[in-house]
Amino acid sequence: MRHICSLLAVVHELTEQSVRFDLYQEIRRSTVDRELLRQNAQLPRHYFDFLFHSGVLEVENDPPYQPGITKPASIGMNIRSLGGNVLFDMCFAPQTYKLWQNTDASLEDLSLPADIFEEYVYRLGAISRFRYLGRVDDPLVATSLGENDMIEFKRDFLLSKGGIIKTVVAFANSNNGNLFLGITDEGTICGIDHEIEQYGDPDKYILAITQYIQDKTSPFLTPFPKISLKKVDGKHVVAIFVEVSSELICGLDKNGEKYVVIRTNNRSVVVKDPHQIGEIYVKRKLGSEISRRLGLL
């Protein structure tokens, strides 16, 4: 069956290991419309062939393209933004459980109409997740929204270390979230300039926060939280964006013991029930939809 829409690769360079190509979206109605999605893209040959064998990719090449033997592959759609069009990365890994932390290759910043995007997800049996959905970069926007399931405030770094790790772990296990340092619980911007002065340099201060999160979480957070310094009315605020993880993330207490945290409304709650921890682990490994289909949740 030939679908009304398909991806089209115009091959520029072909080796046994990889393919370099321009990627188009082609729609066939009364006429054929072709839109460039990615110029000079490159994929390992076996992932390129997987797309071809899946029936979503047509190839223009002289001589006609001859795919190799199909190898196992999993595809994840890393959604950046939603709307009439979906902006996303297409990520590839040998097995589902290796998405997202061990992605082998990717086609980044692709944009397709929402209905066509959904069709490709279905035809590829792909797994989707929201990469930047819920990201709040502006501290003033965050204070206007207040603390909720995706926004948390802390006055500082040095006196809030335990709470910071608890929040980071909760976001990683539940949903994308934004943690701001230098804002009170009531939403007043107090700044962390006094702490920057103690470190003598903004870069050293950010490095200290980064290192502390690395040391107090397990396994390593991938992708690692995005940490940036913002200035509002002459005061500095740290913005930390945490993406939900495909792994079960634990915090480490002062004795090095692991603990699990999830986000519930605007609170980070430590989970002690082994069954609940098991559910979180299954979701992280297989995804909620697959877990439900297998009757594991």
Results as ranks from 00 to 15, higher is better:
Leu7Pro: 00
His12Asn: 12
Glu13Cys: 01
Gln17Trp: 11
Ser18Gln: 12
Leu23Met: 14
Arg28Phe: 05
Thr31Glu: 12
Leu36His: 10
Arg38Pro: 00
Arg38Leu: 15
Gln39Cys: 12
Leu43Tyr: 14
Pro44Ala: 04
His46Ile: 06
Tyr47Met: 08
Phe50Cys: 10
Phe50Val: 06
Glu60Ile: 08
Asn61Ala: 10
Pro63Tyr: 10
Pro64Tyr: 11
Gly68Phe: 08
Gly68Cys: 07
Ile69Thr: 14
Pro72Tyr: 04
Ser74Met: 00
Ser74Trp: 01
Ile79Ser: 04
Ser81Met: 01
Val86Pro: 04
Phe88Met: 07
Asp89Gly: 05
Pro94Met: 08
Tyr97Gln: 14
Tyr97Val: 11
Leu99Ala: 05
Asn102Lys: 12
Ala105Leu: 12
Glu108Trp: 03
Leu110Ala: 00
Ser111Trp: 03
Leu112Cys: 10
Ala114Phe: 07
Tyr122Val: 03
Arg123Leu: 12
Leu124Gln: 07
Gly125Cys: 09
Ala126Trp: 01
Ala126Glu: 02
Ala126Pro: 01
Ala126Asn: 05
Ile127Ser: 08
Arg129Ser: 14
Arg129Asn: 15
Leu133Trp: 13
Asp137Tyr: 06
Asp138Asn: 15
Asp138Met: 09
Glu147Val: 12
Asn148Lys: 03
Asp149Gly: 02
Asp149Trp: 05
Ile151Pro: 04
Glu152Asn: 09
Phe153Glu: 02
Arg155Val: 08
Phe157Gln: 09
Phe157Asn: 08
Gly163Cys: 04
Val169Ser: 00
Phe171Trp: 07
Asn173Glu: 10
Leu181Gln: 02
Ile183Pro: 04
Cys190Ala: 12
Ile196Glu: 03
Glu197Ala: 09
Asp201Ser: 01
Lys204Asp: 12
Tyr205Met: 06
Thr210Glu: 13
Leu221Thr: 06
Thr222Trp: 06
Lys226Thr: 14
Ser228His: 08
Leu229Asp: 07
Leu229Met: 13
Lys230Arg: 15
Asp233Thr: 09
Gly234Asp: 06
His236Asp: 02
Val237Gly: 00
Leu248Asn: 00
Leu252Gln: 10
Leu252Val: 05
Leu252His: 06
Asp253Trp: 06
Asp253Pro: 13
Lys254Ala: 12
Glu257Ile: 03
Arg263Phe: 08
Arg267Trp: 05
Pro274Phe: 08
His275Asp: 14
Ile280Val: 09
Tyr281Val: 00
Tyr281Ser: 01
Tyr281Gln: 00
Leu286Val: 09
Ile290Glu: 04
Arg292His: 07
Leu297Ala: 03
